[in-house]
């Protein structure tokens, strides 16, 4: 309304045609300008904290920059080619994928199982919810240190328990065959509480009438009701949990750093740990940036999958 008013007054004053054009243009641009102004703080923060660093990493991965070095030069895709030929990189990528392949299904199955148990019970629900959620809230570094003592070959709680049961003690973190599964078990322990909470929310939103209909239709066992109602109705939640768990498992670092430092003989070398050691132990920042880009590509792939699948496929109602 105000714009119109200004325009009319101007024409009444019989201003020059050229001068009359400018306020009209301004009026037209007012809305987009306002929108941009309002977006500015968020855009600035995004650029500074997210987009900028990503672009910097992408650029750095194309150089031979070393941390603290006075000069650097552009090397094209040399860092990537070097990665391609590097056995340690492939071990680390494979270890990460194995870790994800253990942690995602295990933490989902455990989370869903415990959510179902809590949902079906009537007493102490809040108590169980809290104790299973505690590992999620705890600082993983601190927890990793506790695990280090629990897993100690001689006086660790776990080996002492095994011994008292007459079972052989294990070198959990120094046996190359056991180290990665052990790290994965800690990952499961840390993650399943989070998945449990998501599944609990999913379970609550299933209309109880569906279970009653299933019972009336002859679904006698809890097993058949699970496959007829619970599992399909949890579809969207399950997809979400799977992708979030996968992204979080890709990020495994703390436990490896505290417990094994990638050893023994690279058995627990994972992507983020390789990146860390390249970047901050050998100071080969360009090389580390290339690993970071590979890592980002995986996360991006999972995110695209999430957007595609969750928002298009697994949705009812």
């Amino acid at each position: 309304m105000a714009d119109v008013a200004i325009a009319t007054t101007l024409s009444q004053e019989t201003a020059e045609p050229a001068r009359r054009g400018r306020p009209r243009l301004l009026a037209k641009l007012r809305r987009p300008l306002a929108a941009l102004t309002l977006l500015l703080p968020a855009m600035t923060l995004m650029t500074l904290l997210l987009i900028g660093p990503v672009v910097a990493v992408l650029a750095m991965s194309l150089t031979d920059y070393q941390l603290g070095a006075p000069s650097w030069s552009f090397v094209g895709f040399d860092n990537y080619l070097e990665l391609y030929g590097d056995r340690v990189f492939w071990t680390s990528l494979l270890n990460t994928l194995v870790y994800v392949a253990i942690v995602v299904p295990a933490s989902m199955a455990l989370g869903l199982g415990i959510a179902l148990l809590i949902e079906s019970g009537t007493s102490l629900r809040a108590f169980y919810r809290s104790i299973f959620f505690i590992p999620v809230m705890a600082t993983l570094i601190a927890m990793a240190i506790s695990w280090e003592y629990m897993l100690h070959p001689q006086f660790g709680l776990i080996n002492l328990t095994l011994k008292s049961l007459g079972l052989p003690a294990q070198a959990w973190l120094t046996n190359p065959e056991l180290a990665l599964p052990t790290i994965a078990a800690i990952g499961v322990w840390q993650l399943f509480g989070f998945n449990m909470v998501l599944f609990l929310a999913g379970l609550v939103s299933i209309p109880p009438h569906l279970y009653e209909a299933a019972v009336m239709d002859g679904a006698r066992s809890a097993w058949s009701r699970f496959w007829l109602v619970t599992w399909p109705m949890l579809g969207p939640v399950t997809m979400f949990v799977a992708i979030i768990s996968a992204i979080r498992s890709f990020q495994v670092f703390d436990t490896v750093h505290v417990l094994t430092k990638g050893g023994p003989s690279k058995a627990t070398e994972v992507l983020l740990y390789s990146m860390y050691s390249e970047g901050f132990e050998f100071f080969r920042s360009g090389h580390a940036a290339a690993i970071a880009v590979v890592f980002l590509a995986f996360v991006l792939l999972l995110t695209i999958l999430k957007v595609r699948v969750i928002e298009k496929k697994v949705h009812y109602a």
Binding site: P207, H209, L210, E212, A213, A214, V215, M216, D217, G218, A219, R220, L228, V229, P232, M233, G235, Y316, A317
Partner: peptide, 28 residues
Amino acid sequence: PADRNLAMVFQSYALYPHLTVFNNIAVP
């Protein structure tokens, strides 16, 4: 309930949203 051999129509219909009409009717 499953052993009483009764059929019920619910106020909310309680259809299985992930199944087609054919499969909904086939469930019992």
